[in-house]
Design a protein around this nucleic acid. Structure first.
Length: 678
DNA sequence: AAAAATAAATTTTTT
DNA sequence: ATTTATTTTT
C-alpha cells in the first residue's frame, strides 16, 4: 500500500521502460530532461520562447504515466483553450492514445467541471448557465434601470458604457482588491457612487443565483470558495490529483495562483512560464505569480530553459534587443545555435493597401519557392487590422484561416438560437428568456418584466409558460408563437433523468431545426432582410457542429468556454488543404511558423492607442511574442498614411520599430513613404 | 409601451 | 461603416 508521501514522488521503477528513458534522453536537452524527470515536490520551469517548455511539460506528463502514475492523478491546467488543445494533442501523440482519466483544460473549464459536481454547495444546480460579457452587461443594464435614486445621468452612462461597471467589479473580484480600491485606483470618477456600485454588485450576485448562472469569474472564485469552505472536498481533490501541471504560469491571475496553492503539500506542483511573454494583464494576469514563485515555495526546483530551438540567431537577436527596453524582468539570456539566416526585414508602405500587396507578393514568392502556406502567418495587434490583407487574399484566391477576434457567438442570430437551447436546458435563465421574448413583435422590456415576475415564481417556469398560465396584455400573438415553439422543442428533448441522450448529434441539430421552423426563421427574415441567407448559413454551421456533442449541456458549455475552438472548427471544415494563417498576436502564442509577417506596426495600432505608459511594457512583450513566432523569415511592416473610416490617424512607425538598433534588421522602403528605419 | 427614426459612439487582446 | 443609445412618433 502506497502512502500519500510516496505516491506524489516520481520513482522510476527498476523495470521502467528502457526505450522510453532512451527516448527522453534523445529528444530532450539537459534542462528539459531535468524538468521532465525531476521528482521534487515543487518545480518551476522558466523558459524563453521557442525553448520547448510545452514540450518539456508534455514529456513530463508522459513520463509520469510511463512511471506508473495513473492518469487520473494528473491535472493539467492551461490558460487558453488553444494551449489546452495543443497539450492534449501532443500528449496523445506521445503516448499513442489519450490517457483516460487525465484532466486537462483551462482553469475555467476545470472550474466548471468541479462546480457542476458540487453545485448545491455553491447554491446552484448542476445545469447552471455560463454567462458571457454581453449577458452580464444586460443584467447590469436592467439593474441600473430599476435603481434610479442617487444615479445622475452622466454617471449612469459612464458606468454602463462598454461594460465599465462589470469590468470594475470583475477586476475587484480577480485581483483581491476591494471595489473602493479599484474605483479609486483606476477609474477616476466620483467615489460617491461607491455605495451604489457595491449595491449593484450585490444585486448582480442575486440575479445570477436566481438565474442558476455563473459568469467567467465565478468559475474560478466559486471553485476557490468551494475548497476553502468545504475542507472535505478540498481534501478529496488534493488526494485525487497527485500531480498538478500548469502551463503559461505568467498569465495566471491571483485567484488562479491561489487555486494552484490549494494543491500544495499534497501534490507535486509543476509550473512553466516566461515573464517576458505575459500578455494578459487586461484579464488581470499577475506577473508577480511567477516572479515570486521561488519565494513562495523556497523548496522549488527552478529549471531554466534558455536555448531557443525555433528561430535563427538574427531573429533571436532582434527579439532580445527589443525586450531589453523593458526594465523590470527576470534576467534571461535567450540564445540560438541554429544556422544563420536573413536579417529580419522592416518594411515601410504608404498605406494599409500597399502593405497588404507587399505581404501578398512575399507570400506568393515564398510559396513559389516551395514553402507551403501552412508555414506562413500574418500577425497583428487587433483583429480589425487584418481586413486589407484579407481582401487581397480573397482577390488572389489564397486560402487562409483567421484566429482571434472573430466573435462567432457575438452574432445576434447565433445568440438568439442559443437562447432557445438555454431556456430548455436551464429554464430559470432569465437572460435567455428575455432575449426570446424581445424577439417577438409587440413584446418589449416592460411586458417581459411583468411576465417574468409571474413566471419566475414557478418552480418550473417553462411548464408554467407552456400551460398558458400567463398571458401578456400586448403582443399576445408573439408570446403564443414563442410558447408553441418551446413546446415543440421540449417534446424533442431526451427523456429527463435517463442520463445520456439516445441518438447523439441528431438531437441538438434537430432542436435547432425545430426552433427555425417554429418561429425564428420568420423573425430572422424580418430583422435581416438583406443578410438573411448569410445568417441562415451561420445557423446551419452551428447545427452541423452541434452534431459532435452528445448532450445539450456539453454543447452549451463548450460554446461558452471554448468559443474560439468552436469557431475554428466551424471554419476549418471549409478549408481542407494548405492554407495561410491570419491571427492576432494573442491567439498566436505558443505557435510557430517558418515565415511570419507582423503588420500594422504603427503608433496607435501596435502599441494600441489604448495602452498608456503603464501598459507599454506589456505591449512590448506582445511584440516580443509576435517576432519570436518566426523560425526563419520575419517581416515587420508599418505604413505611413493611417486612416479609419471616421477620421484620419497620423501614421507613424511603431515605437517598437524605431527603438530597434539599426544592425538587427534590414530596412526596405516602398516608394515615397519616407520611412528610413530609424 | 413599442416601433421607428435619429444621434452617438466605437476597434485591443480571451475565458 | 456599423453598431448601439437616445429621442420621437405611433
Amino acid at each position: 500500500m502506497e502512502t500519500g508521501e510516496d505516491r506524489k514522488l516520481l520513482r522510476p521503477r527498476a523495470n521502467a521502460d528502457p526505450a522510453w528513458s532512451e527516448r527522453l534522453r534523445c529528444e530532450l536537452n539537459e534542462a528539459q530532461f531535468k524538468f521532465a524527470t525531476a521528482d521534487d515536490a515543487v518545480i518551476l520551469g522558466l523558459a524563453g520562447p521557442g525553448s520547448g517548455k510545452t514540450r518539456a511539460l508534455v514529456y513530463r506528463a508522459a513520463h509520469l504515466i510511463k512511471c506508473g502514475v495513473p492518469p487520473g492523478e494528473i491535472l493539467l491546467l492551461t490558460f487558453t483553450n488553444k494551449a489546452a488543445e495543443e497539450m492534449k494533442e501532443r500528449l496523445s501523440k506521445l503516448l499513442g492514445s489519450w490517457p483516460e482519466g487525465l484532466w486537462a483544460g483551462t482553469f475555467h473549464s476545470i472550474g466548471a467541471r468541479i462546480l457542476r459536481r458540487h453545485a448545491p454547495l455553491v447554491r446552484r444546480k448542476s445545469n447552471f448557465s455560463i454567462l458571457d460579457e454581453d449577458d452580464s452587461r444586460s443584467i447590469f443594464r436592467q439593474l441600473a434601470a430599476t435603481l434610479p435614486h442617487g444615479l445622475d445621468e452622466e454617471e449612469r452612462r459612464l458606468l454602463l458604457r462598454r461594460g465599465l461597471l462589470g469590468r470594475m467589479i470583475s477586476r475587484a473580484r480577480n485581483s483581491g482588491l476591494s471595489l473602493r480600491e479599484v474605483m479609486a485606483d483606476e477609474y477616476t470618477f466620483n467615489l460617491d457612487c461607491l455605495p451604489l456600485v457595491e449595491k449593484l454588485a450585490l444585486l448582480y450576485e442575486q440575479k445570477k443565483e436566481e438565474a442558476n448562472a455563473f459568469d467567467f469569474d465565478d468559475l474560478l472564485l466559486r471553485w476557490l470558495e468551494l475548497f476553502e469552505e468545504h475542507p472535505e472536498i478540498k481534501e478529496h481533490y488534493r488526494e485525487r490529483f497527485a500531480h498538478v501541471l500548469v502551463d503559461e504560469f505568467q498569465d495566471t491571475n491571483i485567484v488562479q495562483a491561489r487555486l494552484v496553492d490549494q494543491f500544495a503539500g499534497a501534490a507535486s506542483i509543476c509550473a512553466v512560464g516566461d515573464d517576458a511573454q505575459s500578455i494578459y494583464a487586461f484579464r488581470f494576469a499577475h506577473v508577480g505569480n511567477i516572479l515570486s514563485f521561488p519565494e513562495k515555495y523556497p523548496q522549488a526546483l527552478v529549471v531554466r530553459m534558455e536555448q531557443n530551438y525555433r528561430s535563427t540567431p538574427e531573429i533571436v537577436a532582434l527579439a532580445n534587443a527589443s525586450i531589453a527596453f523593458n526594465r523590470v524582468q527576470l534576467p534571461k539570456k535567450l540564445f540560438s545555435q541554429n544556422s544563420p539566416g536573413e536579417k529580419p526585414l522592416v518594411v515601410g508602405a504608404r498605406d494599409a493597401g500597399e502593405e497588404a500587396s507587399f505581404v501578398l507578393d512575399r507570400i506568393m514568392a515564398l510559396h513559389r519557392g516551395g514553402l507551403p502556406l501552412k508555414e506562413m502567418a500574418v500577425l497583428y495587434r487587433s483583429a480589425f487590422l487584418s481586413t486589407e490583407v484579407e481582401f487581397a487574399l480573397v482577390r488572389q484566391g489564397i486560402p487562409y484561416r483567421t484566429f482571434g477576434g472573430v466573435k462567432f457567438l457575438q452574432k445576434s442570430h447565433i445568440k438568439d438560437i442559443l437562447a432557445y437551447l438555454k431556456v430548455l436546458h436551464n429554464p430559470v435563465d432569465a437572460e435567455a428568456w428575455r432575449r426570446l421574448a424581445l424577439l417577438q413583435p409587440g413584446l418589449g422590456q416592460a411586458t417581459f418584466n411583468r411576465l417574468w415576475n409571474d413566471l419566475k415564481e414557478s418552480p418550473d417556469p417553462l411548464g408554467a409558460a407552456l400551460s398558458g398560465r400567463v398571458t401578456p396584455a400586448r403582443g399576445k400573438e408573439g408570446w403564443r408563437s414563442l410558447c408553441r415553439t418551446l413546446e415543440a422543442l421540449r417534446a424533442r428533448l431526451p427523456v429527463a433523468g435517463s442520463g445520456e441522450s439516445g441518438k447523439k448529434g441528431n438531437g441538438i441539430a434537430g432542436l435547432i431545426a425545430e426552433a427555425m421552423d417554429g418561429n425564428y426563421e420568420q423573425i430572422l427574415q424580418k430583422n435581416y432582410p438583406d443578410q438573411y441567407e448569410e445568417r441562415l448559413r451561420g445557423i446551419e454551421r452551428l447545427a452541423e457542429n452541434a452534431a459532435r456533442y452528445d448532450s445539450l449541456g456539453a454543447f452549451l458549455e463548450s460554446l461558452a468556454l471554448e468559443e474560439s475552438l468552436f469557431a475554428d472548427a466551424a471554419a476549418s471544415e471549409r478549408i481542407d488543404g494548405d492554407h495561410l494563417t491570419l491571427s492576432t498576436v494573442h491567439s498566436a502564442k505558443g505557435k510557430e511558423w517558418e515565415a511570419v509577417f507582423v503588420i500594422g506596426l504603427n503608433e496607435g495600432s501596435f502599441p494600441s492607442h489604448r495602452a498608456g505608459d503603464e501598459e507599454l511594457p506589456e505591449e512590448r512583450r506582445l511584440f516580443y511574442v509576435a517576432v519570436t513566432r518566426a523560425r526563419r523569415y520575419l517581416y515587420l511592416s508599418t505604413y505611413w498614411a493611417d486612416y479609419r473610416s471616421w477620421g484620419p490617424v497620423t501614421g507613424e512607425p511603431s515605437l517598437f520599430l524605431k527603438e530597434l538598433p539599426q544592425d538587427c534588421f534590414e530596412a526596405v522602403l516602398i516608394e515615397g513613404t519616407g520611412f528610413t528605419g530609424s
